[in-house]
Structures are given as C-alpha cells and as structure tokens.
Amino acid sequence: MQKLILEPNFSSTDDFYQMLIDMHQGLDDAESQLVNAKLILLLANHIGELGILREAMDIARTAK
C-alpha cells in the first residue's frame, strides 16, 4: 500500500492557495461548503485508495 505524501509535492504552493481563494470568490457560506465537498470528492476519486484517504482524514482531524 502506498503512503500519504506529506512533503510539499507541487511547484507553487502560493499559486495553489490563490486558486483555492479564487474558487470561493462570490460564494456564500453554504455555496463554499458545497464547493469544498465537491472538490474533496473529486480528489478522493482521483486518489482512489481507501488506505491513503483514511490516513489523510486521520491527519486532518488530529493535526493542530
């Protein structure tokens, strides 16, 4: 089984962060929550491995 990659794994974190901010532009709270949920499901489908997804969920829930 693969492990979740925890080191930075893309070239421009600033560009990615700006894309996330832009995605929410003009949305109310409910619309932002919905678009976040859709993005999570799309990326989870792309990953496709339950072990990796479970590890990511555990880390996201417990990380401070």
Rank of each mutant, 00 (worst) to 15 (best):
Q18P: 01
E49Q: 13
L43C: 11
L50Q: 12
L41T: 07
K38E: 13
N36A: 05
L39Y: 03
Q33R: 08
L34W: 11
L53Y: 01
E49K: 09
A30W: 05
L53S: 00
G26T: 10
A37M: 05
A30N: 00
I47H: 01
I21L: 02
D15Y: 13
A30M: 06
Y17F: 12
G26D: 02
Q33G: 10
D28M: 00
I21G: 01
I47Q: 01
L34D: 09
L20F: 03
I40N: 07
Y17T: 12
Q25K: 09
L27R: 09
I21A: 02
D28F: 04
A44I: 05
A44H: 04
V35E: 10
L50A: 09
L41R: 04
A30H: 10
G26S: 01
G26P: 01
D22V: 13
N36R: 06
L39A: 03
L20I: 07
D29Y: 10
D22P: 05
L42A: 13
K38I: 15
Q18R: 09
A44S: 05
I40H: 02
A44G: 06
L41Y: 09
I52T: 00
L50G: 12
L34N: 12
V35W: 08
M23D: 04
L43F: 09
E31T: 12
L50F: 08
L50M: 03
H46F: 14
A30Q: 06
M19R: 15
Q18D: 09
N36H: 07
G51L: 05
S32K: 09
N45H: 14
F16M: 15
Y17H: 11
A37T: 01
D29L: 11
Q25L: 04
K38H: 10
D22F: 11
K38P: 08
E49T: 07
E49C: 11
L34K: 07
D29S: 10
G26N: 06
F16D: 14
I52W: 03
N45S: 10
D15N: 14
N45R: 12
L41N: 07
